[in-house]
Nucleic acid binder design. Structure first.
Length: 386
DNA sequence: AATACGGGGAG
DNA sequence: CTCCCAGTATT
């Protein structure tokens, strides 16, 4: 069998398989370009099972492009809370404003306009154009590269841009006339259900008999991919400040900076500490550093004791968190402490925004998972103790 | 071309 | 535990 025949076989049998085996997914129930766009953004780096409940909540809260464009950013982040890569949510709303402004609220169907949307790159542009509008554009994600690298025995590193470009050209050749939507989804569906990263289910694969990697017995060692650097460790000391007086029963949170990691989300006040040789810092110096950091931030509270440890791994950083209970100082004492402190130190500019919140208020602020876990633990403990 | 940017699932 | 997943923006 020559290569042309191998390609034809692949396209025909894969498409046939998909039409009988495709999953019933929420964004497949209508051909609504907005639904497809939202789902594709959510599905970046994220599994289908994780996305489904978020997708339902998101569409219920923001049924149309215009609803999303007009919403407060904090509402959008709250809806994305726990899903990760929050720049996707911020960019999606920016793009919704672009669509409202320049395309009358209708998702554009030309390559130039779709690609110009914030957060839409080569993959997502191809996915929206093909899935929503049946345009013969490639949508090459990790699933597609895995399937193609095996079937055609492509041993180039898939992390290289040149490899992805090659795959895009290949997909354009493979798309059956007029079937871009189903074919691109078929490619990804095969990668998700059959041609899996580890122990692929070759015996149920519709194109196994002409799969080059399978015929060579090397399907498990493809695709070739350089592995990522391990995340660097960081140690941080965190304050769970319990309010006094008018803030009784509340805890103190602050908003993260406008840019960078977890931008504009909310968190517990904390400070990074140098990594000691033994790893974690003993309680005494940790609480001392924390006390100074709180004062520096204009918070009149003092650490009272150890509460818990928490860990969180981002793709590039590993956080080791030591959480300490702290107590807000009474007003008169606080004023005195603050007065003495400001006499001895330069006053900080650009202080972060702080809020005192009770358990119910958590529904109105978007937190990264690790702080959600700590704050919930605190309120649960309160409930049990009280 | 290299780095920043979250969070889950499988074994 | 360890390993895997892998799009877009920025520089």
């Amino acid at each position: 069998m020559n290569q042309t025949e191998q390609k034809k076989f692949f396209s025909q049998h894969l498409l046939e398989w998909y039409m009988h085996n495709k999953r019933d997914l929420p964004w497949r129930r209508h051909r609504n370009p907005y639904y497809i766009w939202v789902s594709e953004i959510m599905l970046q780096q994220t599994r289908v099972d994780t996305v489904i409940p978020y997708f339902h909540r998101f569409i219920e809260r923001f049924p149309t492009v215009e609803d999303l464009a007009d919403a407060p950013e904090q509402d959008v982040l709250k809806c994305w809370e726990g899903l990760g890569y929050y720049s996707r949510a911020r960019n999606l709303q920016t793009a919704a404003k672009q669509v409202k402004e320049h395309h009358g609220g209708q998702v554009p169907d030309d390559k130039q306009s779709v690609f110009a949307l914030k957060g839409v790159g080569p993959y997502t542009a191809g996915a929206v154009l093909s899935i929503a509008f049946n345009k013969p554009e490639p949508a090459v994600d990790g699933n597609v590269m895995r399937v193609l690298s095996r079937y055609f025995l492509i041993e180039e590193d898939i992390m290289k841009g040149s490899t992805r470009s090659f795959m895009e050209g290949l997909v354009v050749e493979l798309i059956p006339e007029g079937r871009a939507s189903d074919f691109n989804q078929a490619l990804m569906e095969l990668g998700a259900l059959v041609c899996t990263p580890k122990s692929p289910h070759c015996l149920t694969c519709p194109v196994m008999e002409h799969c080059s990697a399978r015929l060579e017995g090397v399907e498990e060692s493809l695709p070739v991919k350089t592995k990522a650097k391990p995340p660097r460790p960081e140690f941080r000391v965190v304050a769970l400040v319990e309010g006094s007086g008018e803030h009784a029963g509340k805890v103190l949170i602050r908003q993260r900076p406008q840019e960078g990691l977890l931008a504009r989300m909310w968190e517990l006040p904390h400070v990074q500490v140098p990594q000691s040789r033994s790893g974690r810092l003993p309680d005494e110096p940790a609480m001392d550093i924390l006390a100074g950091a709180l004062l520096e931030e204009g918070i009149t509270a003092r650490p009272t004791g150890y509460m818990m440890d928490a860990e969180h791994t981002f793709s590039h950083i590993h956080w080791n968190l030591q959480v300490y209970s702290c107590r807000e100082e009474e007003l008169t004492l606080a004023a005195e402490t603050k007065a003495v402190y400001t006499l001895e130190h330069e006053v900080e500019d650009a202080e972060p925004i702080h809020r005192w919140i009770c358990e119910e208020d958590m529904a109105r602020y978007a937190f990264p998972n690790v702080f959600l876990k700590i704050i919930r633990e605190y309120f649960n403990g309160k409930q049990t103790a009280g």
